[in-house]
Nucleic acid binder design. Structure first.
Lengths: 224, 224
DNA sequence: CGTTAATTTGAGCTATTTCAACCGTTGTGG
DNA sequence: CCACAACGGTTGAAATAGCTCAAATTAACG
């Protein structure tokens, strides 16, 4: 259950250090360590539990909890550019797993980035902005979960994903099971919601993992 | 829709400045402005929309959104000691309202606290800790919303509240309607869940707004 | 190709929403 | 001081939505 490879940036992704991934300031880029993970592998840096700030560079990951009854809840979905470990460290039983292969994550020691942030206001500002983004993601998640019907939840979820791609086409890195655990629904309900959304012309399924969002929210449609 | 009174700390709460409310470091306490609000009144400092960091000192407030269809969603419940305005500022349509009378909130200009934080690491640390608390609250909220049954949601909600009081007795500042909007349920379901929780001996209702939590989680009971 | 995992579909059951009415409290104006 | 409106809370009944168990179908991968 260890990363298949844990490499210096220069070894794993020569371009990452030289040109930068674009996700963090150059100043931080230099001290990052890239690690590559495979599907369902836990993401952490060996040796220390909560001492790292991490940014997903490629692939996808999700932060989740498993309940005492065996149920799993996905608290946050992490796509390239998303980070974790700065906020939400003390939550009990929270862990991060890769959900596709390969998933590449950049790890930064908190002690280091804090030292840099202390003397570089630009970096400090960047980190605060990252925290705000994480909070915004959590709030969007809450809003999603508060929607009444499963169709609304699934549609809202797909809409958020499609907003992160240029066109409406989505490459789903995440399985129906993960979506179910993210939305607090059963897999069957997620699947049915998908097919029904297609039936109603709101999405187009070009395969289980290829979705294109088409229309306006389900909420507006049900209102009409 | 303006605060009934907007006072210097020394005028409204003589003790707040001298002894401190205990919620923020002395260094910050000095620059805070206390404002008092009545139920359903929007909480903001006149003149600037998102330029303040605010801490609830007494009473209670909730951060909410109203959807296009008229539904309201409560994103965060703010009890004495909880803060808002640092994270989650850019969310669209988000506003904070007092949910009981009186609700007292301390406002701090962001420009000021950032300046202080820049030269006082202790204050900076405090602010980071506050952001982590806010995120932890959001995560707990997500986990609550992901619970499958309404009883689990309501019980989890009450349990979180009771964890913030010394004994298990809760003084509910929040109405059933607010709870419903917080948990993404209808009012009727919340009410029914309450009476059923009492029927099953998990809580004791000493009046609509006085609840005492008794047993272990509903989840464990349903498992048995 | 064959095996395994992922997704979809079906049927019965339970939970939740919705619409409606009722009760108790509070506050207000006559 | 009382009647009455307004609000918060509870309860009832019908319709719907979602969960569970079960199985079929499809995609992924060695």
């Amino acid at each position: 259950m260890l990363p298949s490879s844990k490499l210096r940036s220069s070894e794993a992704m020569p371009n990452a250090t030289t040109h930068g991934s674009g996700f963090v300031p150059d100043r931080l880029e230099a001290i990052g360590r890239l690690a590559q993970y495979t599907r369902s592998m836990e993401i952490h840096v060996q040796g220390d539990t909560a001492e790292n700030w991490s940014v997903v560079v490629a692939g996808a990951a999700c932060q989740s909890v498993v309940r005492t009854d065996g149920r799993r809840n996905v608290v946050d979905l992490l796509l390239p550019g998303d980070d974790f470990g700065l906020l939400a460290t003390d939550a009990p039983g929270l862990s991060v797993h890769a959900i596709c292969t390969p998933t590449i994550v950049a790890h930064y020691r908190k002690s280091l980035i804090e030292a840099i942030a202390a003397e570089d206001p630009k970096v400090a500002l960047h980190l605060r902005e990252r925290m705000r983004e994480t909070a915004a993601r959590l709030i969007r998640h809450v809003l999603l979960l508060q929607k009444t019907t499963a169709k609304d939840k699934v549609w809202g979820f797909l809409k958020i994903l499609s907003a992160r791609t240029n066109d409406g086409e989505i490459q789903l890195a995440i399985s129906r099971y993960d979506i179910a655990d993210y939305l607090g629904l059963s897999v069957e309900t997620v699947s049915r919601a998908m097919t029904e959304l297609q039936f109603r012309g709101r999405i187009e399924l070009r395969g289980p993992r290829r979705v294109k969002t088409l229309g306006r929210p389900v909420a507006e449609q049900t209102a009409a």
